[in-house]
Amino acid sequence: MIIKHPLLGPRDAAEFVYLGDASMIDRPNPNAPDAKEQFYEYGYLRDNPAGEHKELWYHEQGDRSWLVVTRNTITHEVKYVQLARDVARAKGRDR
């Protein structure tokens, strides 16, 4: 597979390490009243869709950036790739 890095252009997926669903960015607020429930869902439950999937890849053999890759899990077609840091900020992570 090839991942089109937003800064570096197309790179073989072998340079990357995969983590999983991009919802891993959404670490819950530990002070929420239902934090335990939220962390359980965050830690363990996945949509695991057959189709478009936003997922985290780490360019370990490259610039060390984490990317959010939107990829189809049936065709493997990559729709777009973003820097995870930008995504996390856009999601409003506060620190």
Partner: peptide, 16 residues
Amino acid sequence: SSRVMAMAGMRLPIES
């Protein structure tokens, strides 16, 4: 598993 159980409204601790 995830696809089928999603039809019952369930999310699973599973990735395929």
